[in-house]
């Protein structure tokens, strides 16, 4: 007797046929040398939500974002963005890298950097015109940085630099924002500005995926969370995810028992 025929693999049906998930990842595996950074990750991001990616240091959070954007090579797996390939969806994504990833001594002003977000729209061979500069200043205003438009970026504080990056992402007018630890080492004003902007873009219909470190604020700032520790531990609404059991599984002994309870209780 023959065994039954196997059927094609359909891990998850699209939630609805009208709008495909902003980000859908299957079997994503990334390894630096022979140490895996992300292992066999399956994930579907819910539409129009603010999503935190949490997990301990070295859990592969930044690596996951970079692999999605094709900035680091992945060993296996595939990524669909709004139901199409990365190449086709490029214009719909804005990426905010970690602040340390660029040379802040570069000869550019805050306005210059925000205008870079418009380069895709301006197109090849066309210079940056006055109206683009005006647009850039508008976006700086949205993050409370209009007074610093002409200043060289190296002479801004860390928080101000982060807000310039934020304004640049806004200028890209994306449907999916990928942010790599925007809250790291910023002042309270910047933190508020980032949260406000995230809520604005959600209202406008965009999705935000954000690597986040501070577990105490996850519940306040985000709707959903993806818990990562090389593998996906779980994902869901922040209420579902921020339980003592799940945090224990993700962080293990790296998070004190009392801390886990405190975080799990605040939500």
């Amino acid at each position: 007797m023959n065994p039954p025929r196997l059927i094609p693999f359909e891990p998850s049906q699209p939630r609805n046929d009208i709008s495909p998930s902003p980000l859908s990842v299957r079997g994503l595996t990334v390894a630096y040398d022979d140490k895996p950074a992300v292992w066999n990750l399956d994930y579907d991001a819910p539409d129009r939500r603010l999503i935190a990616i949490i997990g301990p240091n070295g859990a592969g959070k930044s690596t996951m974002i970079k692999a999605i954007l094709g900035l680091v090579p992945s060993l296996a797996g595939h990524v669909r963005i709004f139901g199409t390939t990365l190449r086709q969806a490029r214009r719909r994504i804005a990426y905010i890298p970690q602040r340390t990833s660029v040379d802040w001594d570069f000869p550019a002003s805050a306005e210059d950097v925000v205008a870079m977000g418009l380069y895709g729209k301006i197109g090849w061979f066309r210079p940056v015109r006055r109206r683009h500069r005006a647009l850039a200043r508008e976006h700086l205003e949205r993050v409370g940085m209009e007074d610093f438009a002409g200043r060289q970026i190296g002479r801004l504080s860390g928080g101000q630099q982060q807000r310039v990056f934020l304004a640049r992402a806004l200028a890209q007018k994306a449907d999916l924002y990928l942010m790599d630890e925007p809250f790291a080492g910023v002042d309270a004003a910047t933190e508020r500005a980032i949260v406000n902007v995230m809520r604005e873009v959600r209202t406008a219909g965009s999705t935000v995926l954000c690597v986040h470190h501070d577990l105490r604020t996850v519940g306040d700032y985000f709707d959903h969370a993806l818990v990562l520790n090389i593998r996906k531990i779980t994902d869901g609404t922040v209420d579902e995810v921020l339980t003592g059991d799940i945090l224990q599984r993700a962080y293990g002994g790296r998070l004190a028992e009392t801390e886990i309870h405190a975080i799990a209780h605040t939500t």
Partner: peptide
């Protein structure tokens, strides 16, 4: 990684999910 993916899918009654 591919063999793990393939075998796990087969154990669940599916064909291997990708070419490799």
């Amino acid at each position: 990684a591919a063999s793990v993916r393939g075998l796990l899918a087969m154990a669940a009654g599916y064909l291997p999910p990708d070419n490799l």
